[in-house]
Amino acid sequence: MPFYEKSEDWLHHSSLLLAARPDTTRITTNYHLSPARRTPKNAAPEQAAEDAKKGTRGHLVITTFDPKSGASLKYRTSKAQEVGRLVQMLGNLAAKAAGRKEEDEEVKKEEDVEMGDGAAAESGVATPMTGGAGPAVQQQQPPQAGGGGGGGKGKKKKGKR
């Protein structure tokens, strides 16, 4: 049962597991809150008050589990800023599980192509393109897009140095 370092990796593998076993896979979100410091029961009241000042600590663990194969994919975080993104991921996975996979993918593809076209039209030295959109654009208009892609790559390398 691996813990993934990045939530994107977790999302990717979860969606694969979900595609393989849509009926049995479940996604669990566990939000746990505990005092930052545990006080013993027989501790002095002063110390208890001091420990209470330290506040609480929250943890969030998301698990994708398939009981049939026993696969369990986990991601753990304690950052509040990630909650929104993670719930969005849960929503995407739920849409796939509900049988809305095809629609969503089509919509995404269309968006990608549109974005690629827009970028190519705006400037010859385009921003670095995503792997998905690049080839499609090249097929449509070979000379322009090829030059744009090359320019973009060169620029990117310069930026890295």
């Binding site: 979100t29 939000y31 809150l33 609480t56 600590r57 929250g58 943890h59 969030l60 975080t77 304690s78 950052k79 509040a80 800023q81 909650v83 929104g84 719930v87 969005q88 849960l90 929503g91 739920a94």
Partner: peptide, 19 residues
């Protein structure tokens, strides 16, 4: 549903570390 779900979760999970 997930829009509201995200709102409720964000509000509820206040024990996590802020940015």
């Amino acid at each position: 549903f997930y829009v509201r779900y995200a709102e409720v979760c964000k509000a509820g999970m206040s024990g996590l570390k802020p940015r």
